Computed example of a mutant assay.
Amino acid sequence: MKWSEFCIQTTNEAVEPISNILHEAGASGVVIEDPRDLEREQAPLGEIYELNPEDYPEEGVRVKAYLPVNSFLAETVDEIKESINNLTTFQIDIGRNEVTMSEINEEDWATAWKKYYKPVKISEKITIIPTWEEYEPVSSDEIIIEMDPGMAFGTGTHPTTVLSIQALEQYLEKGDKVLDVGAGSGILSVASVLLGASHAYAFDLDDIAVKSTGLNAELNNVQDQVTSKKNNLLEGIEMEADLIVSNILAEIIVQFTDDAFNRVKPGGYFITCGIISGKKEDVRESLIQSGFEIVETNKMEDWISIIAKKPE
């Protein structure tokens, strides 16, 4: 089978929404070429190993997806372009928005994208590794999370994922029940359980995300403690949680801060991420109006995480 490589030059801000658009369009794997990953090679946390600078653009970010060459390809590409252009209605900067297409053989596609995924240390305790990489823990208390990027929305290298897991490491208590809203690959659910949560419930509207969470839970032997379910945010969810985490767009977070307040126990936390700097005050205001107290705000590159607490 032949595959078509869809490549778009965009901004760091637009990477996650564009990646979701591509997955929803049936892309078999997404590659993100972000030169900021090279800068993080030297950082004490967020360190990525063995990346080649020649594989990355000098400016902006390239997002690549692989689509099967068939009679529907042209229509699919047009729909993708339209969805990406529509991101501007959410005040998301899509940058140059330059799209190129090229054909690639299946055997080349199956191995080429793997060079972009290397072990990455993202917090004091947690290191994320792709399934095919060998890695030896450097300390006895290091937590290793295996991920399969072939089905994933996020593999731990993006700042929003790093911020989310660092917050989980700080605020999650042993035995907590966790709700992961907009779970994507399920990485935050898996991390929650490995950090001591009794159970994590992962919710996402996308079928691929639901399946990906299940696969990654199995990879890390936590399938009995992670429940993956198709659901629209917290709609219809009645259970109470000790902690809620959500790494999605700010425009989506503000839609369910009331539901989050009602579902988290008194004294519990709501970890929000996926917030660009320009949207920070919108999220803060929504959280406060729902009844939360803002505990902490953190920043990595252009991204913000806000940790809120429900008063006891």
Rank of each mutant, 00 (worst) to 15 (best):
W3R: 05
I8F: 02
Q9H: 15
Q9N: 11
E13M: 13
P17K: 01
I18H: 08
I18L: 12
A27Y: 00
S28I: 07
E39F: 05
P44D: 08
L45P: 06
I48E: 06
Y49C: 10
E50M: 12
E50G: 13
L51K: 03
L51E: 06
Y56G: 11
Y56K: 06
P57H: 02
P57G: 02
R62Y: 08
V63E: 03
N70S: 14
F72K: 15
V77F: 11
L87H: 03
T89A: 15
I92S: 09
D93N: 12
I94D: 06
V99A: 04
V99H: 04
A110C: 07
W113Y: 15
Y116L: 08
Y116M: 02
K121V: 09
E124F: 02
W132Y: 09
Y135I: 04
E142W: 11
E142P: 12
I144V: 07
M151H: 03
G154M: 02
T155G: 15
G156I: 05
G156C: 08
H158T: 07
L163C: 12
S164N: 01
S164L: 01
L168T: 09
E169H: 10
E169G: 11
Q170F: 06
Q170L: 15
E173T: 10
G175N: 08
K177Y: 13
G184C: 07
S185F: 00
G186D: 03
I187F: 02
V190E: 04
A191T: 10
L194D: 10
G196H: 04
H199D: 06
K211M: 02
K211I: 00
S212W: 00
G214P: 05
N216W: 00
L219T: 01
V222P: 08
Q223H: 09
Q223K: 08
S228H: 00
K230G: 00
E238L: 14
E251W: 09
I252Q: 10
T257S: 15
D258A: 11
D259R: 05
V264C: 12
K265F: 04
Y269I: 09
I271W: 03
I276S: 13
I276N: 14
G278N: 14
E281I: 13
S290Q: 06
I294L: 15
K299E: 15
D302V: 10
I306F: 04
I307Q: 00
K309S: 10
